[in-house]
Design a protein around this nucleic acid. Structure first.
Length: 259
DNA sequence: CCGGATGTTCACCT
DNA sequence: GAGGTGAACATCCG
């Protein structure tokens, strides 16, 4: 599920745990603990720690505490369940996503509340004091100048640069395709080949995409989304969309109006 | 049955 | 250094 918009939904859903104290930690899956972290560390360090705030940079969700900052990554299939309620009921895979066997990490609070990460494919993970310096500025707040600088330095395809979390944080496959669709720019253009007016157009498109799709309910609510099938037609001009690999990801784009 | 899917990291190429 | 590719993770869907 998650790109920036979904992680922001998770962060908001986690706000009720601010002020609570961790009583116990369930870390049944070593693989899910990242950054040299092990079950002994988590269960040893976190109990007794109080949650003091929530945060998010790109797709990384943060639980600030009076001890270490807890970083949560959700991969493609991770969900957050706070006090028994799933933060997003949207389903990617239809129905069967509620198997407790997929609970990879849980905080149990002393007042009885809980925060659970449920992730069928184990693509997410938990880390203490994550290195946030490895992330670029969050896509929802980056201003035009740094955005332009990020593109100027690279010969990589535009889409690959936008999906590079160390350059701009938060955009994934769907949000990038939607933003480029709206900006009328080809995902294959070398990032540095954009003119100043195109950079400005793209910057506005990213912000508008985040705002609009955020209001609609998530990264999968874009105008391009229904056409993301083989032979799909451009919702803007009816051209058959091109389906290519860019930056290692399947990319749908309109060769007619995206230049 | 097979290919893909909202992601990240890492090894290994060129 | 910069980019690109493929593997790994595990489940569901068309």
């Amino acid at each position: 599920m998650p790109e920036l918009l979904e992680i922001e939904t998770y962060r908001k859903a986690a706000e009720p745990v601010v002020g609570r104290t961790i009583g116990a930690v369930d870390a049944p899956d070593d693989w899910y603990l990242k950054g040299g972290l092990g079950p002994a560390e988590v269960t040893g360090v976190l109990p007794g720690v109080r949650i003091t705030g929530t945060g998010r940079i790109g797709k990384l969700m943060l639980l600030e505490t009076d001890g270490p900052t807890i970083g949560l990554r959700f991969g493609m299939t991770g969900r957050l369940i706070v006090n028994g309620d799933a933060a997003l009921s949207d389903l990617e895979y239809g129905s069967n996503r509620d198997n407790p066997a997929w609970d990879r990490f849980a905080l149990r609070f002393t007042d009885g509340g809980s925060l659970v990460m449920r992730d069928p494919r184990r693509l997410g993970g938990v880390e203490l004091d994550p290195d946030v310096a490895r992330l670029g500025p969050d896509a929802a707040v980056v201003t035009l100048k740094p955005f332009a600088r990020i593109l100027a330095g690279s010969g990589a395809p535009l889409k690959a640069r936008l999906m590079d979390q160390s350059r701009v944080a938060g955009l994934g496959n769907l949000l990038v395709d939607e933003s480029l669709f709206r900006a009328g720019l080809s995902p294959e253009r070398p990032a540095r080949s954009l003119q100043a007016d195109e950079v400005a157009r793209l910057h506005r498109a990213v912000r508008r995409t985040l705002k609009t799709l955020g209001g609609r309910g998530g990264s999968h609510t874009g105008d391009l989304q229904p056409a993301r099938v083989r032979g799909g037609l451009c919702p803007k001009d009816g051209e058959v969309l091109r389906r290519t690999q860019v930056g290692g990801r399947t990319t749908y784009w309109c060769p007619h109006h995206q230049r």
